[in-house]
Amino acid sequence: MLLWLHNNDPFPSVESALDSGSGASGLLAASATLDVQRLLAAYRQGIFPWYSDGQPVLWWSPDPRMVLVPAEFKISTSFKKTLKRVLREPAWEIRVDTCFIDIITACAHVTRQAQNGTWITADVLAAYSALHQQGFAHSVETWYENKCVGGLYGMSVGMMFFGESMFALRPDASKIALAALVSHLKRHNVNMLDCQQNTPHLASLGGREIPRHLFMAHLSQAVVAPPIPWQFDKTALLDVIT
């Protein structure tokens, strides 16, 4: 039976999450509401919310876990040419945290294969916006001719980054933002970006699955480290193309 969390209940051990034979592998618990403090506690324990409107808040900790190690980030020959053009042409910019609400809202409206609706509900948007104000949630934005054409957002806790969602209005715009983020994380010795669940797109960029116990061992050390700075621009891309 799935554990129901009341207001002050702690999360159970991630080892109690449902297994692959359950039909909901990684599902750990449910709750009625999504508040900022519980959300922050979840990330520090390797747990994240994923649910749709009309459902209770569902909390997950899958095994294995999809991660991207910055040193393993893959760039194709054609994408490297794109990044060089971004660096060369003044019309392209990378901005950080200049339009967080717009980024998460755009991510909520992306049509994704085999997914009806969005998990970025009004409650999710409100909670992550509050975490952005507190310095935990960040957006990395790709701008072209002074217009935001793509980007991503996620959570930064200590020396751990948890990727949440991305969108693109121009080809490769979200990948450009991801490349800049990966380079920034690498510069500051952040050795793991949490991708949560496996997708072919992430795998093509170097993402891979690791056992949950290895993810948790890394997480326990990373989230108690001092936070990294969150100011960078497109020159960060130099690190991933050289």
Rank of each mutant, 00 (worst) to 15 (best):
A30T: 07
S31T: 09
A32R: 15
A32P: 05
L34V: 04
L34W: 03
L34T: 04
L34P: 01
D35Y: 03
D35I: 06
D35H: 13
V36I: 13
R38M: 09
R38A: 06
L39I: 09
L39H: 06
A41R: 13
A42W: 00
Q45M: 07
G46A: 12
F48Y: 11
P49N: 11
W50C: 06
D53S: 14
G54A: 12
G54C: 11
Q55W: 11
Q55F: 02
P56I: 05
P56T: 13
P56N: 14
L58N: 05
L58D: 04
W59R: 07
W59K: 08
W59I: 12
W60V: 04
W60H: 07
S61P: 00
P62S: 09
P62G: 01
D63T: 08
R65L: 04
V67T: 14
V67C: 06
L68C: 05
L68H: 01
V69F: 07
A71F: 00
A71Q: 14
K74T: 14
I75R: 12
T77L: 01
T77Y: 05
S78K: 15
S78W: 10
K80G: 09
T82S: 11
T82W: 00
T82P: 07
L83F: 06
K84R: 15
R85Y: 13
L87C: 03
L87Q: 10
E89H: 11
E89S: 12
E89L: 11
P90Q: 11
P90V: 13
A91L: 10
A91T: 14
E93Q: 15
E93P: 01
E93G: 02
E93H: 13
E93V: 03
I94N: 04
I94M: 06
R95M: 09
R95I: 02
V96Q: 08
V96F: 00
D97K: 10
D97S: 12
C99S: 15
I101Q: 15
I101M: 13
